[in-house]
Write a protein that binds this DNA or RNA. Sequence first.
DNA 1: AGTTTTGACTTTCTTTGACCTTTACGTTAA
DNA 2: TTAACGTAAAGGTCAAAGAAAGTCAAAACT
Lengths: 155, 155
Amino acid sequence: MSVLSDTIEKFIKSLMSEYEGKIELQRNELAQHFNCAPSQINYVLATRFTPDRGYIIESRRGGGGYIRVVRLNIDDSDHLFQLVTKRIGEKISERDAMDIICRLVESKAITKKEGALISAAVSDKALNIPAMIKDSMRANILKQMILVLLSEEAQ
Amino acid sequence: MSVLSDTIEKFIKSLMSEYEGKIELQRNELAQHFNCAPSQINYVLATRFTPDRGYIIESRRGGGGYIRVVRLNIDDSDHLFQLVTKRIGEKISERDAMDIICRLVESKAITKKEGALISAAVSDKALNIPAMIKDSMRANILKQMILVLLSEEAQ
DNA sequence: AGTTTTGACTTTCTTTGACCTTTACGTTAA
DNA sequence: TTAACGTAAAGGTCAAAGAAAGTCAAAACT
């Protein structure tokens, strides 16, 4: 940690849990609080509060503007299925894969250990092959593993 | 002694025991401390802190970057560790992999679900690539996943 | 010959700042 | 009265600069 973006991320997340997954920020105010450029806030939101990580952002400009951050809950049991059939396509980057796994862990859909196992299997470290096929290989493995979660869920 | 790499190795190891098997380094800082090229640190890590020697490395680039070194808490007789260092070589067939996973489940070293996850990741179904590299890929993935089990255990 | 050391170049992630767009609101002119 | 306009108050974008770590091959040791 210790890097500004991480600190802001933590701050927003603590607000999120305090306000049950839905908050409204003032960008400038927040930037001032952390003594940074306002666009830093956009950076944090763009990299840490993505749909893959289970958040959506809405905002409005002008007087009385705001940035709304909403945490999406994984309550529909369809989520894993959606991942396999829609979100993960033919290819997926390491980054995106990690985001997806991260969300599953954070939402308690899987344990930390299971998350770590899946991460290991789809990491660049494990997939030491030409970049060409790497991402399609990763998508494949990830989907197969999620299918296991689905079938386990059925028990 | 007298070789720089050995000195750095010792230094890191002493940090390791001071901080109970888990540390975070700043590559440049460390290089400066030893008055050497930053890539020297990579060399030391790559040659002396390998999984075979019971360590795993994670890192992050960019501002706020770090190198994390984690010691697996194992003794040489540890079964899982043996798998990584001896049993699973450069290549492994699907059949052999499944046998290994099966035994891990039966011996309660891992849960059924974890076993199912690992199986999925190293199955031929997941690894839809030329047979040539398939078995080496499988070996790689399997080893990475087992290393996770070892490092998670360390927590 | 094999291991170590170095340095140039690359990749990834973060931070900042200049400039752009949208919205609310008050003021002015028809 | 109201349409038009101006302005201030938000937030958005993007590219450049900065801050790490990674790679690889050549040079230097032993």
